[in-house]
């Protein structure tokens, strides 16, 4: 019954330093990208109490926006700001139309509704953009590579991506910790009524948080578009990995999302390049898709509420 595959990727163990460095950079970059998506997911849950399965669709939306806007406007530099504006508007509209009806509802219905939204978005994507795989060109300014050794190069665009993600992460930290809006947001996640009694319009805060979370995910999609291709179903893969990030980090915790995302970025990347054989069975990289879930399982045994989660949620 078992059909042996003729093709089985076999990679040398990453032992030499330049390869190790490249994989490290890749892992961190992937982790930072995951953080952008997962931070929105965890904020939307922590502050609004909404579990949003459709969050991966926003990542996909960003990638497709990057594709179309780059075609239309001629450059990714123009496409990025335009895409951000469009996704914020989309977030505000979606919150107003649908999401705000979920605040008082049980998680079960949030799950069901946002699952329905995934199908809707996926099909709208198919109607608007078709089912082909697209690519987005890396802007010329960043198209170069840095050579590490004679035959190993690292693309500048990936470095720039990591840089942008880091700046955004710091910005997010600053907004949440140092601004009045951030203070209100954090207070609102602990005690909704208290914030409301201060005369602050909590519905407006929710709308802002939702739109910002959506825009973060979409922006991640735009950034990723030139490195990965733009393809149907790309949001769903990312969504489930982001759930793992949030579970590991602790729901509602932005620091947790950062730690979880970097951990997963590294584990996933190195899981794909290391070779591990046990008793003649090749476990890695064949089972590399499973490593991050195994890590989640271990963390669940140790801290069921996640690394930075509070007990009893």
């Amino acid at each position: 019954m078992i059909f042996p595959d003729a093709f089985l990727p076999y990679l040398e163990p990453a032992v030499d330093f330049p390869t190790f460095l490249i994989q490290l950079l890749n892992g961190v970059q992937y982790g930072l990208l995951l953080f952008l998506i997962a931070s929105g997911l965890t904020l939307i849950f922590g502050i609004m109490g909404i579990i949003n399965l459709a969050h991966g669709s926003f990542y996909m939306l960003g990638a497709y926006l990057a594709f179309s806007l780059t075609e239309g406007l001629g450059s990714l530099w123009l496409a990025l700001p335009a895409g951000i504006v469009l996704s914020v508007l989309f977030g505000l509209a979606l919150e107003w139309l649908v999401i705000q009806r979920l605040y008082a509802r049980d998680h079960l219905y949030q799950v069901l509704l946002t699952y329905g939204l995934i199908l809707v978005f996926e099909e709208l994507r198919s109607i608007l953009w078709g089912d082909d795989v697209h690519g987005v060109k890396v802007p010329e300014l960043l198209a170069a590579s840095i050579s590490l050794t004679d035959n190993l190069n690292y693309p500048v665009y990936r470095l720039a991506m990591s840089g942008v993600c880091l700046v955004l992460a710091l910005g997010l930290w600053w907004v949440l910790r140092r601004t009045k809006l951030g203070m209100i947001i954090r207070a609102g996640s602990v005690n909704r009524d208290m914030v409301q009694s201060l005369g602050i319009d909590i519905t407006l805060i929710y709308r802002i948080v939702f739109a910002a979370g959506l825009a973060l995910a979409a922006f991640a999609g735009m950034l990723a578009a030139p490195t990965s291709s733009v393809f149907p179903g790309m949001g769903n893969q990312v969504l489930i990995i982001c759930f793992v990030v949030v579970v590991i980090g602790g729901i509602g915790s932005v620091q947790g999302a950062m730690i979880g995302a970097i951990l997963i970025g590294l584990v996933d990347t190195f899981g794909k390049v290391l070779t591990l054989e046990v008793a003649g069975f090749q476990l890695l990289p064949q089972l590399s898709g499973v490593t991050v879930y195994l890590m989640m399982a271990v963390i669940l045994l140790w801290r069921p509420e996640g690394l930075f989660g509070s007990r009893g949620r």
Binding site: P4, I240, V244, G289, Y293, M296, E305, G306
Partner: peptide, 22 residues
């Protein structure tokens, strides 16, 4: 919510076991 996410993640893990291996 953890339960929802974690059940999904474990199912996905099995999905990858069958998807990625021969």
């Amino acid at each position: 919510v953890y339960f929802i996410m974690v059940t999904l993640a474990f199912a996905q893990m099995l999905y990858f076991v069958f998807h990625d291996t021969k």
